[in-house]
Design a protein around this nucleic acid. Structure first.
Lengths: 152, 152
DNA sequence: CTTGAAGCTGTAGTTGCTACAAGGTTTATA
DNA sequence: TATAAACCTTGTAGCAACTACAGCTTCAAG
C-alpha cells in the first residue's frame, strides 16, 4: 500500500539520517517531525522530505544546537522569504557559548595535564592528583565552582 | 545540643563548599556523603571533615569528573596506603576525554565562525547557515554524526 | 503460510542535580 | 517567654535528550 514517495520505513529513515528509530519517534512526540503517514497496519512511512528534515535536525544537533534552537531554525527555514537575521542571531549566540566552553575546557586540560604529570606513582597519601582536587589553592585555574558543565 | 565538631547546619555546609542544601541531600542519597548525625529535632549537623569531603566532591565535579569517578577517587583517597596507579588511570582517562572533546569543539567553532561570517543577512532562502546545516557536503568537519555531546 | 525481523505503544531509566509543597525546628528579637 | 522569620525536613516531580525495555502486532521473503 505504498503511496509513491511515502515508502520509507522508520528503520530505513533512521539509518539514512544516522540515528535510531527511537529517536525518530521521540522527535515526532516532541513535534520536531510531523506525524507520519501510516500503513494499514499502523506502521510509519516516510518520504525523502522527511529524510532531509531529519538530517537537518541531526546535523544541527551534532553542531551542538539545542532542540529548542533546532526548532527555531526549522521554523525559519520553513519560511524562505523571511530575513535571516534571527538565524544569524541564533548561530552567533551559539558560537559565543562554544567559545566560552572551549576556554574553560582548555584550562581544564592544562590542569589535568599538570596533575597527571606530577603524579609520582607512589602512595595515594602523597598523590598530587588527589591533592590538587582537594585543595583549590593548588590550582592554576582562577574560577572555582562556576558550575560543572557535563563534560562526560 | 551541638556536639563539639558537629555543629554545622546543611545550609552552612553547602555555603562553605559552594553548592546548595539540595545537592548535599542528593549526595547523601546517592552515597557520596555518609548519613549525617542529627539534632533532636531531626536536622542534619556536620563537622569540618564533611566540609573537606564535600569540597573535594564539588571540586572534582568542576573538573568534569563524573559522579562515578568521584566515587572511585573518594574510595581511594580513603585508603592512603594504596598505590595511586588507579588514581592516575582515572585522571589520565579523563584527560583523554577532555582532549578529544576539545578537538571536536574547536572544529565546531571554526564551522560556526565560517557560517556566521558567510551569512550575508539576506533572506532565509539563501542563508549560508541553514545551507551548511542542511548539507554536510558544505562542512569543513570530517566526522559527521558521531553523536551530539551536550554542548548546551 | 510460515517465520523472523522489524515495528507498535507505553513506560521507566539515564545524569546530576533543581524546584517545589506542606509541614516541622531553630534562633533571634521583643 | 512568646512569636516570627529563617531555616530545616521528606517526598515527589521536573529538566535535556534521548535510550531501553516489555509485550504485542505487522511486514516481507521464501
Amino acid at each position: 500500500m505504498s503511496i509513491r514517495g511515502q515508502s520509507i520505513s522508520i528503520g530505513e529513515l533512521a539509518r539514512r539520517a544516522g540515528c535510531k528509530p527511537e529517536t525518530v519517534r521521540y522527535y515526532e512526540r516532541i513535534g520536531l517531525l510531523r506525524d507520519a503517514s501510516r500503513t494499514d497496519g499502523g506502521q510509519r512511512r516516510y518520504g525523502d522530505d522527511t529524510v532531509r528534515r531529519l538530517s537537518f535536525i541531526r546535523h544541527a544537533r551534532d553542531f551542538g544546537f539545542s532542540v529548542g534552537s533546532v526548532r527555531e531554525l526549522l521554523a525559519m527555514s520553513d519560511q524562505p522569504d523571511m530575513s535571516c537575521q534571527e538565524v544569524d542571531a541564533i548561530a552567533t549566540h551559539h558560537l559565543k557559548k562554544v567559545e566560552s566552553r572551549l576556554q574553560r575546557l582548555s584550562a581544564l586540560r592544562e590542569e589535568l595535564q599538570r596533575m597527571v604529570s606530577q603524579c609520582a606513582g607512589g602512595k595515594v597519601e602523597s598523590c598530587r592528583i588527589i591533592e590538587v582536587i582537594s585543595d583549590h589553592q593548588l590550582c592554576i585555574t582562577e574560577n572555582p565552582h562556576e558550575g560543572a558543565q557535563d563534560l562526560g
